[in-house]
């Protein structure tokens, strides 16, 4: 799949922002006043900024309100509804924290649950795609949720939680890569089943429909980016998981915390880039490509 920068930025940043909102909703940290304002501002900048970035991906963002209508069937619509609900509920909760030093516990929990729901909906947009075997796994929502919680804990300054969740998500990331590498073969979709010509013999793409490229090839068949996949996996794993854990284990200081956050975000951006670049869409088979 084509790794669109807008979607990579959106899933990474909004995942972090909504993860931070979960912790803020749980009252961890239970700060008030100006400190609470800074925390909520970061959460809103990340979550809202991510949503705005995703709007750049649309052909007709001016019709965006229609995307709130099909929540019964569409995960993308559910994501839209849940994200706005989260921003609304957490906004009210934030007002209590910032201006009244109040902890409206139930409201915070509701906001946290909605934030998790938003991340789940985002992940299900990918996990539902039968056409992209690498994504179609329960591990995909698990990884998105765990990463969101881990990154959120990191931003919320919950060091011990961040350590546990980062370690867990590192293991899950490895498991996700491992299952993904076998997923296409396991899906059973081949050039033989795509063309129905398998019973006759070995199928080979002889001529593409047109001499030039097309939307399908640009959007679904992204081969160039896979060249350095292994190197990028090492970079993503080191920056996203190993280094932040090392920074957190060092004696606590705000500089170390900052370094852990920057390293984590950079690593997750790299892994999210691979999430798309390495994902193979079955339509490539019609072109003799993966």
């Amino acid at each position: 799949m084509h790794p669109a920068p807008s979607i990579i930025a959106f899933t990474t940043l909004s995942g972090l922002g909504f993860g931070l909102m979960v912790w803020l909703g749980l009252g961890m940290p239970g700060s008030t006043g100006l400190v609470a304002f800074v925390f909520f501002a970061i959460a809103y900048a990340l979550a809202g900024g991510g949503l705005i970035a995703s709007a750049f991906h649309l052909g007709h963002p001016e019709r965006g309100l229609l995307a709130f209508t099909q929540w019964r069937s569409s995960w993308l619509s559910r994501e839209a509804v849940l994200s706005v609900a989260t921003l609304g509920v957490m906004g009210v909760y934030a007002i209590g924290r910032i201006f009244f030093a109040a902890d409206w516990v139930l409201l915070g929990w509701l906001g946290g649950a909605l934030a998790l729901g938003t991340v789940l909906a985002t992940s299900m947009i990918y996990a539902q795609m039968k056409t992209v075997p690498r994504w179609r796994s329960p591990l995909t929502p698990a990884l998105f949720l765990l990463l969101s919680l881990a990154g959120g804990a990191l931003l919320a300054g919950q060091v011990s939680w961040a350590l546990i969740l980062l370690a867990l998500s590192a293991v899950l990331q490895l498991a996700w890569w491992r299952q993904g590498d076998h997923a296409f073969a396991a899906s059973g979709t081949t050039m033989a089943s795509a063309t129905g010509l398998g019973p006759i013999g070995q199928v080979r793409a002889f001529e593409p429909p047109h001499t030039g490229p097309n939307y399908l090839l640009r959007e679904m068949v992204h081969i160039v980016g896979r060249k350095h996949a292994l190197k990028l996996r090492v970079i993503a794993f080191g920056l996203g998981y190993v280094l932040p854990i090392a920074f957190l284990l060092a004696p606590f200081s705000h500089v170390m915390g900052m370094l852990a956050v920057i390293s984590h975000i950079t690593g997750i951006l790299a892994s999210r880039w691979l999430f798309f670049a390495e994902a193979e869409h079955v339509v490539g088979l019609y072109y003799g490509k993966r």
Binding site: M1, H57, L58, G59, H60, P61, R63, G64, L66, A67, L76, I125, Q128, M129, K130, T131, V132, T189, A194, Y215, L216, E219, M220, H281, V282, V283, Y286
Partner: peptide
């Protein structure tokens, strides 16, 4: 249509 392209992703036949 908002041009999100998700339906094209969901179609296995291109």
């Amino acid at each position: 249509c908002i041009g999100c392209g998700l339906c094209a992703w969901a179609c296995p036949y291109g």
